[in-house]
Design a protein around this nucleic acid. Sequence first.
DNA 1: CCATCAAAAAGTGTATCCACTTATGATCTT
DNA 2: AAGATCATAAGTGGATACACTTTTTGATGG
Lengths: 260, 260
Amino acid sequence: MARRARAGRVSTLKATLRPLTGDSHRRASVDIHQYLRDLILSNALPPETILSQVEVADCLKVSRTPVREALRMLMEEGLVKAEPNYRCRVLGFDPRELEALYVSRIANEGIAAAVTVQSMTDSDIKKLAELLHELGNDERPRNLRRWLKNHRTFHGLLFCRANPLLQKRMLVDCQRSERYIYNTVQAGLTDLFRRAAIEHEKIYEACKRRQPATVVALLTDHLAAAAIDIMAEFAPDWEPTTLRNAILLMHRGAAHLDKA
Amino acid sequence: MARRARAGRVSTLKATLRPLTGDSHRRASVDIHQYLRDLILSNALPPETILSQVEVADCLKVSRTPVREALRMLMEEGLVKAEPNYRCRVLGFDPRELEALYVSRIANEGIAAAVTVQSMTDSDIKKLAELLHELGNDERPRNLRRWLKNHRTFHGLLFCRANPLLQKRMLVDCQRSERYIYNTVQAGLTDLFRRAAIEHEKIYEACKRRQPATVVALLTDHLAAAAIDIMAEFAPDWEPTTLRNAILLMHRGAAHLDKA
DNA sequence: CCATCAAAAAGTGTATCCACTTATGATCTT
DNA sequence: AAGATCATAAGTGGATACACTTTTTGATGG
């Protein structure tokens, strides 16, 4: 079996992880999962960080059992790599992953939005408006973590009538792409937010008018713009063929959606 | 918290599960996962069957630890439901799930096929031909399990150039839909296979000619036909709006794909 | 006969333990 | 001094133990 890279930084775990304080009546594995996921997405635990079961358990003052479950969940979400008998590692950034994520989001969120917009209640629209206000249009949000949470909720509302299992998948994709956003923002890129604000506004207006086809088109452009923006900063040489296919498909397709 | 249905049949577990015989050097949790998944997909473990950790562990002659991991994996795949402190149950059939599955497959496999077909090697084409032959065109395959395995491989080849994580997801979707196919076949419906044979042939021909747009269109129709067929047998009153949207999107979109 | 409810049985989540695998670092070789 | 070798430390997967939760059971009263 191929031997994995020796690389990796010295363990930052002891400096980063704090003992779990949550109510002991909730499941530890779930809390640990969320805690670690948050740290990975925000780059507090950078790529290649080794997450050994014992060390994590030690830092968090719990036993290995719930840590194992949490690590397995992170693996399912594509945030860490775990091979049999080897310690778990935080996965690195990969332009192919980034592209796949946004392709998946464009296709799935688009289709899900098409059906959701048609049956949106006035209360849904109102929630969208509130989130829009929360998100603001700063060049750079004061609290990135909260901005991303609201952003996730905004997108979540656009597909809230889809199948629950697909919804969960889309949320996972959304969160996984947040990791790239954190990284890009830390690198200084800030064009993202101003443009996102404009695009969110347009999407909201189209939802308000209950125009699925327009929403799908706008959503496709919104996601594609973000993908290309992040990609430019992150892997400028990458040729996003699949992404272009997806954009084209959704655009051409969406134009005919209303005639269904 | 809502109390779950008391229903459920008497435990068939002891009659169904056999002790694990695999090589002890492989991970038990993975073997258990595959074993249980196979039984669920083929309806040997019907909906509402209770999969308690202790009972499964007992039947399989292993401890609860790997069983827990296996059950968690099944949960991620949407085959069982597990709530904290409650025993795990096999999920029932749900037209919404069926629709969501095929919508997801139509969108994702379509986009993935678009990029894969362009870069298919002659060896890939040859493999497709072999599988086509294996699948045959019987009204009803002699060995359904093997037919489905080959079928999965055939579809897998159509998106083998996509991102690995998406590939895994598509395979999971494919397997989840097999559960509905098993059920439909057991109910007597057999139109599926003859038509599938014709459609697979057409897809193969388009791959051979390296025509992505055609493959996407044919694949969309192939999946949509299967979905509608199964749905008709299974939930005749269901109005598959989302599915129709997806078909439309992919068709209109695919037509313009070649101009990329 | 059915509903109620307390106690027993069974089940889940977490901690700990053991056997075997992988990583580390000192020692030896050249 | 660089590389191979091997004993030891550390880590993982699986088994077992235990505290707490849910389910079942069965006695009791209407």
